[in-house]
Design a protein around this nucleic acid. Structure first.
Lengths: 353, 353
DNA sequence: TTGAAAGCGTTACCAC
DNA sequence: GTGGTAACGCTTTCAA
């Protein structure tokens, strides 16, 4: 007996006794002395059938352990019932809560989720997209590293929703951290800090651009020294290296691209004997490691739950209403959350008040 | 113009000027004055064709932006090129690294990954399984909450690989933490601890059973008081609650089901003014929050990378060699990693040495 | 209320 | 080397 995928010319009564191959509509129809059409309807539009017929079919199906073949169905209907989600790095703590939120909402819509993690590589992301496109009704791109042109090209042929990427004309949900960044910088300044560093993330990252811009302006307008330190990569290790540079630069406060890099920085600072927040204030971003850290990390609130919910809603609209017909844009405002890693600047310096 | 999924009787020349519908083999064949078969072969078995033909077809395909339809291909070949992965809770920090490892290996095998998060619910896991079964070649069940009977039933009809669940006859990879648990308990005892609590995870969890068993025996044979505290749920919050019970129970050391609950416990202990490790030793499990914490959490090493790699290997074997023909079992040994949250017991008590 | 048959996009067998 | 055609499992007109 062939294991799988074998061709059988006369598909009639192929199975021996207990040989349980996956039953098909045909199989059930045969057992119920009826046709494929009827059996199909028994599942999709039972209201059109004689209740007795439905009942009989359902019971036979149950007995045989029938499960509809999603791919065949999709091929026929043009709808897959699947959606895709592409993230740069699933191990970055910002994403799991987001993925979870999307997953749960997908369940509610009765959709299955394809997950892709691109490893921060645009090329890989592209490949994954193409692979997923033919098996999904739409795809959510979270913090995509693709160029605007690439995203537009994809959107041309497949429903898309963006998270944390602002491309006009495409449905997108944005977590706006600019106000929160200004608050955080304001807090630091009020607490006497005059030398602040920003650990800058990937250049392709919209979020990073936003934060960098807001921080730059806030410091500039306050006449404060502002150092931009480029992370080698948006990871724990990247944060560690950047911490050393920050120390060398002689700042008293660090605003990190995200919580993960902030934690990396924290670890390295501790290793160097620098106590947070006494010797150095540290603020992360995303609130992805809630209170998981000691001391609890000051950060900018993440909102990934809401972001996920809205993203799925938008995607659903895009799928049903054809190509993202209007310029849907949801903006979620983050807030500065002051916990235990940020405080007064050390030494003689004081607030001006 | 219909948006999608429309039926067209004469599929000949349906598209107007720039109306870019997704091109099919037929479409390309037509443009190249050849047949579907040939075009198909140009992609799958170009060696069988005249190089000129191949080149021409490929260029036309490129120009049209042709992408093969995975579902149609799957329907025809019986292989989907997809695999599924079901986890109890993607937000639990143990899983992201595991998922990432599986994802990367899947990429290497040129497989797409379906991710399902069951929310710790067996029912939901079952539903997801059935939904995924028809669109995947095989499914990896990580820390499944399903009963043995349910798992076996599924395995009957679909290739499966288990992670951290020991069911004879099915391919599985196990992270064995028993030796590590014994080492951890041994360490605590040597450091003067005589009252130890274990924060116990989900009953369905094989890992939890293993840890509980090892800890119980280790304490028993050393004649040490051992308290089992059942977590309301394996989460940060669950850990917080359990910490209070531990304090009430008057233990000097806590071994937690996993890192997440350990962190929850840590947070609550700190809030209660209990300093770790001075007043209370704390050991997690999985090494999922590497050094992300301060003080760095003592834990049992996770090995999720290796687990993911082996799981995919086993699944691949199961898929290719038909139903998991032999009792493949990979056991990975975890180690106790002593960091900063575990140390000598407080007060008068001393090690016997 | 039910059945026949065409069609979804692809592959694979069998001729030519 | 290449083309015709059946088949994969399901949905959906169209007739009866």
């Amino acid at each position: 007996m062939p294991i799988t995928g074998s061709r059988t010319i006369a598909g009639k009564k192929e199975q021996k006794s207990k040989e349980r191959a996956k039953p098909t509509l045909e199989e059930i129809a045969h057992r119920a002395n009826t046709s494929r059409s009827t059996v199909s309807r028994a599942f999709s539009r039972p209201d059109l059938l004689n209740p007795k017929t439905v009942e009989q079919i359902l019971s036979i199906a149950e007995e045989l352990g029938y499960r509809p073949n999603n791919m065949a169905r999709a091929l026929s209907t043009g709808r897959t019932g699947n959606i895709g989600l592409l993230v740069p790095d699933i191990a970055n703590p910002f994403f799991p809560p987001l993925i979870k939120a999307i997953q749960q909402n997908a369940d509610a819509y009765d959709l299955c989720l394809f997950l892709g993690s691109s490893g921060e590589s645009a090329m890989r992301e592209n490949t994954l997209f193409q692979r997923l496109a033919s098996q999904t009704d739409g795809i959510i791109l979270a913090s995509t590293r693709l160029s605007e042109a690439q995203v537009r090209a994809h959107a041309e042929r497949h429903p898309i929703t963006l998270i944390n990427r602002d491309i006009a004309g495409l449905p997108r949900v944005l977590i706006d951290t600019q106000a929160a960044v200004r608050d955080a910088i304001g807090f630091l300044i009020e607490n006497g800090h005059r030398d602040i560093a920003y650990l800058s993330g990937p250049k392709e990252s919209w979020s990073n651009q936003q934060r960098l811009e807001a921080a730059t302006e806030a410091c500039k307008s306050a006449g404060i020294r502002f150092e931009v330190i480029q992370l080698s990569e948006p990871s724990f290790e990247g944060g560690e290296k950047a911490a050393e540079e920050s120390v060398a630069a002689g700042v008293t406060a660090i605003l990190a691209f995200d919580d993960l890099t902030a934690q990396g920085a924290h670890a390295r600072l501790s290793a160097l004997g620098i106590v947070v927040p006494r010797d150095m204030s540290l603020i992360g971003c995303d609130d992805a490691l809630p209170a998981m850290t000691h001391p609890a990390l000051s950060t900018l609130s993440g909102l990934s739950q809401e972001a996920g919910r809205h993203a799925l809603k938008l995607l659903q609209d895009a799928i049903l209403h054809g190509k993202s017909l209007q310029d849907m844009k949801v903006v979620l405002g983050a807030r500065f959350i002051c916990r235990e890693t940020s405080g007064p600047a050390q030494s003689k310096r004081q607030s001006k008040h």
